[in-house]
Amino acid sequence: MSELLSPEILMSIMTAAMGVATIILLAALGELVTERAGIWNMGVEGTMLSGCLIAYLVMASTGSPILAALVAMGAGLAVGLLIGFMTVTLRVDHFVTGLGFNLLASGLTLFWFRSYVGRGKPPSYSTIDKAPIPVLSDIPVIGPILFDQHLLTYIAFFSVPVIAFFLRRTTFGLETRAAGENPQFLEAKGLSVATRQYSALLFGSALTALGGAFLMLTFADQFRPDISGGRGWLAIVAVIAGNWRPVRTMIAVMVFAILDSVAVHAQGVGVDVPYQFFLMLPYVASILLLVMIRSRSGQPAKLGVPYLRH
């Protein structure tokens, strides 16, 4: 196992971890905003998978990563609308809705992928390039890890303070939080709970789908039905372990991302421990995190409770 501890490998692990973190972080931030509005969206995994497939289809047919990311986000909006219709308008149980959607998404993406590919070989493309930041990326050690990354990685990490600011300091952010804490209060002020919850779902689902697109465009050259690999679930765990706070959620995401990256490298380097052991690490960590961090003080009071207005 000592192979994993050489400086080059460690650098590589950390650099790759930033990429994995981007995927989970985008989804986690989207889920965080959604949950703060009171919707416990369990459909993150399915949304991410949909983002992957749409990005793949667009990329394979047009070759434009920007277009692929945008269309994937558009698909995310559609997913948000669907989940919103179920949870907000019809007030279906949030868990049932999310789990149902995940099943639907895994079935539909597979079906669509098969019919797109037909009998031939699935088209593939080369993954997109990184966008190193001049000067900063030349700093030893942290330069390559932090500043030789994809554009979306910078955006994802920059979103952490932005979302924290949004929730704390903006009018809409305050109202979004109120929707999760005490919807009656909002309604008493004459503000629509539904509008805030729909908005949060649209935003969150688009961000999650963007995470899926990023996964598709940087980590694989073709779609696989299991490509999201439970990262959507890790995003949900990260929000809980982060006690519904953006910065802490980011830290939880980093823990998962580093372990995920270790697993990938362990396969590459060929350590003498069965690689399944490493693959298991992020999920074991997620359970451990939930056991250790039991504080749920940040959980919105009315999270997951369908709101019935008079």
Binding site: T171, F172, R177
Partner: peptide, 30 residues
């Protein structure tokens, strides 16, 4: 209207409870 049963968000500050819905701009002028 001052409600018979409190309609306040316990996890918000007094100020946040009051400004919510009252300010039109994007950023809350705390």
């Amino acid at each position: 209207l001052v409600h018979q049963h409190f309609v306040l968000v316990p996890d918000f500050t007094v100020l946040e409870n009051i400004v919510i819905g009252s300010e039109k701009g994007l950023i809350v002028p705390y």
